[in-house]
Amino acid sequence: MSHEVTFSINKLPEANVNQPYLQKIEIYNAGAMPDEDQIQWEVTPENTGLTIKRTISETSRNGFFGGIEISGIPKFQGEITINIHGYGYSSYSGRKFNKTFHIKVNP
């Protein structure tokens, strides 16, 4: 049985300027993440028109966090970089994760 932290997707779909965008990413095998600060992110560049929020795990019986949701309307063409990092509590040990995603925004 693998205990490596994985994500529900490996690549984010492309977006279009001034068109709604919505994508969820689930984080698997990280362990329990009951606190908001256990999932963090940075978005580059700033003010892209997209927002990120933590989501409750689809498999959590305790209402723990388990991923993120990216939504909004991209303001400009180019590439948006999103780095997701954090940790969970596990019976094996704390599971840290760090993954960078890119969104290509088309005109």
Rank of each mutant, 00 (worst) to 15 (best):
V5P: 05
N98F: 00
T55W: 00
G63F: 11
K11D: 09
S93L: 06
T48R: 00
Q19E: 13
S91V: 10
I82Y: 07
N83S: 13
N106G: 04
K53T: 10
I25M: 05
G67I: 01
P74H: 10
F7K: 09
V105G: 04
T51S: 15
I80T: 07
V43N: 03
I80P: 04
P74I: 05
L22T: 13
E26G: 08
P45N: 08
I70N: 01
F97V: 05
I82H: 00
N10P: 01
Q19R: 11
F97D: 07
E58S: 14
G49H: 01
T81S: 14
V105E: 12
S91Y: 10
G63A: 11
E69L: 10
E4S: 15
E79S: 14
E79I: 15
P20R: 04
D35T: 11
V105W: 06
P20W: 01
T59V: 11
T48Q: 02
L22A: 13
F65Y: 15
K75E: 12
T100M: 14
K24E: 15
D37Q: 12
H85E: 13
S91L: 12
G66S: 02
S60C: 08
A15V: 01
G86A: 09
F7W: 06
F101Y: 15
P20H: 07
E69S: 11
E46W: 05
F7G: 01
P20D: 10
I82R: 04
G66T: 04
K99C: 04
I103N: 00
I80V: 14
F76R: 13
E36R: 10
I70L: 06
Y28T: 03
F97S: 06
G86V: 02
R54W: 06
N98G: 03
T59Y: 11
E46N: 15
K53W: 00
H102S: 12
I56D: 00
N47L: 11
E4L: 15
T44Q: 12
I70P: 03
N47R: 13
G67L: 06
T55S: 08
E42P: 00
Y28S: 08
I56E: 02
Y89W: 11
V43W: 04
Q23G: 03
N62A: 14
G78Y: 10
I73V: 15
S60K: 08
Q38Y: 05
G94H: 09
S8H: 08
Y89A: 07
P107G: 14
